[in-house]
Amino acid sequence: MKRKKHTSGDDEAQVDMTPMLDIVFIMLIFFIVTTSFVKEKGLDVNRPENKNQSNNPSKSLSIRIDEMGTIIMNGREVDIRRVIANIQTYLAENPTDSAAIQAHENTEHGVVVEVMNQAKEAGINKVSVLVKS
């Protein structure tokens, strides 16, 4: 004689987990919403700027004026009336914000001043004059 096992009693003993999961998710949402985000107090750090940026000028423009007043840029003789155009062409290929003017000691000052004015007009902010010591 075999005995029958009651399987229907085991089925009734299971617990439904859905309401418990709902409560856990509601609690999670509650804690996320009520959490206050505190800004940490401390010192602000001023970091130096990156010196390897591409918009930094690479080299300065070199302009030479001989004792006769002849202007030489990039190994070419340039007319005083065409200095702005030549500087703008140079700036299109080589972005820079400085120029160095090397004038002969017997050069007229008016030519040097005119070249400086044209360089500033062309968009160069820093113009320096090199002298012999």
Results as ranks from 00 to 15, higher is better:
A13S: 15
A122L: 11
T89G: 08
V78F: 04
E93D: 12
R3Y: 13
S133R: 14
K51L: 13
H109S: 09
L61W: 01
E114P: 04
S128M: 12
Q118M: 13
S128W: 03
P48E: 12
R3E: 10
E77V: 10
Q102F: 02
K132F: 10
R64Q: 06
N125A: 12
V24F: 15
N46Y: 08
D66G: 01
N56A: 03
S133W: 10
A13E: 15
Q14V: 12
S54L: 05
V112S: 03
V78E: 00
S98C: 00
E12H: 04
F30Y: 15
F37C: 11
D44E: 12
S60Q: 10
I26W: 06
L28T: 14
I32M: 09
S36V: 15
I32A: 11
V127L: 05
D11C: 05
T7I: 11
K132P: 10
E77A: 07
P48C: 02
F37N: 08
V78Y: 04
I87H: 02
V115C: 05
Q14K: 14
I84R: 07
I87K: 00
S62H: 04
T7H: 07
A103F: 00
P57K: 00
V115A: 07
S36D: 11
R81Y: 09
Q88M: 13
E77N: 11
M17R: 12
V115F: 01
M116I: 15
I32P: 00
R64W: 01
